[in-house]
Simulated scan of single mutants.
Amino acid sequence: MNTGGFALTGLSVRPAQVWGAIRLVPLVRHEPIAGLRLDRRVYEAGDPSIVDIGDGTTYSSFIPHAFVASWGQGADPAAAFGTQLQDRPAAPRRAKLQTSGRAIRRLARRIAPGRLRFLPMHLAMEGYLALHFGGPETAWEEWTDSAVRHGLSPRVEEAYSGAWVRGLADALRVFEIHPGQCGVALYVADTLASVFVVPHPADYRALHATLLEDMYGEVLFHYTTYVADVPDFTAAIDADRVSSFADLRRQAAVQKDDWARFHDGSMATGLLGEDAYTYERVYHLGEFTLSRMLPSFRLHEENHIGELISTADGQIAYCKTFRLSAPQIRRGHLLSRLHAHNWDLLATAKALGTEPTQLAHRIEAAGFTGLLRHHVVTRPTRPGRPQ
């Protein structure tokens, strides 16, 4: 693992397009990423699939499709495979870590030389679900026997299908795809919901509609209910400075550059401003690396999880991000602080500037009630220590 910031290297921003509360910001490459292509494998609708993490643990979730990454000299398909959307119920997706199940799929599996099938967004979500999943390493008196023996099992998080986000289907249908477009930043009520990037413009055209099947946080689903419209982008060209086509092109370039600076410096700062992401390598694809990332879980701020394929020189070839809700951030923050202090309630409470009993109530409010013994939550005095 390593830590660092996140940047959309190799991509430039184009002016946004708006439909109601949906804003799509095109991300364009000057040159496609050589040697890597993405296509799509569609799964039939039905019961949730069971995903094998690889360490004996599995989780269940609705999985509409997988991506297949092809790399090397032959990684140049004329069109992405199986890109049609199928009719399926648009239901909230639940991801649950568990120990048994059926219809098992692996997060990432090599299916042929130079071809890797992986489950988009599930690489990132699994990293969040498995965050300090093992539970206390020391059998402190405050933790239940099941917490010590089985950790956080089961762990459940909810996400909404894009089909539930009002206006998204229409927006994806009517928005213009720019020449050279290899990605998009999706905003709901001007809140960054997701960034999606692929290596080649043909891949993006084929996979553009898959945004409708992606996972999104609960808060973004509700934002479209409360916010009807967001302001559209309007270019303000000074007519007094335009006397030729060359002048018009220069003025248009200024507007484009101003929009890009505004987007990166204001709208996307919650994602791009984080300088302490934790990156975990998942798979090597020749000269490319497939990784997942976790934020530092800053309270009262934007936090995004994600997965990416990067080149040897750090360019983003593939990327998909997910904005965590406030409760998810609190859960990640608590688990990270507990882990940093060896799950010692007294030490963790001191580091957080609170009392152990107050910390116990915060753990209970975060949905981890089963980890603590009942008397730890109910008694007004400080928890003790095992004798």
Rank of each mutant, 00 (worst) to 15 (best):
N2T: 06
G4F: 04
S12V: 10
S12M: 12
R14V: 07
G20V: 02
I22T: 08
L27P: 10
R29Q: 08
E31G: 02
A34T: 15
G35D: 10
L36K: 10
D39H: 13
R41C: 08
A45Q: 14
F62I: 07
I63E: 09
G72H: 01
A75Y: 08
L85P: 07
Q86A: 13
A90T: 01
A95P: 00
T99K: 04
A103N: 15
R105F: 10
R106L: 03
R115G: 00
F118W: 15
L123Q: 13
E126A: 12
A130D: 08
F133A: 12
G134K: 07
W140G: 08
E142P: 03
D145Q: 14
R149W: 03
R149V: 06
G151E: 02
V165F: 00
R166M: 07
I177S: 04
C182R: 12
D190A: 00
S194V: 01
V198T: 15
P201V: 02
A202W: 03
A202N: 13
D203P: 01
A209H: 08
D214F: 11
M215Y: 15
Y216T: 04
G217M: 02
T225C: 03
D229T: 07
A235H: 03
D247L: 07
L248Y: 15
R250L: 15
Q255T: 04
H263K: 02
D275Q: 12
D275H: 14
T278I: 09
Y279H: 13
Y279Q: 11
V282F: 03
H284S: 15
G286V: 06
S291I: 07
S296L: 01
F297M: 06
H304A: 11
A317T: 05
S325L: 00
A326R: 11
R330V: 10
R331E: 12
H333L: 01
A340T: 10
H341Q: 13
L352T: 12
T354A: 09
P356I: 05
P356K: 13
Q358F: 06
H361M: 13
R362Q: 15
R362S: 14
A366N: 11
A366Y: 11
T369I: 05
G370V: 04
R373D: 01
R382P: 01
R385C: 09
P386H: 14
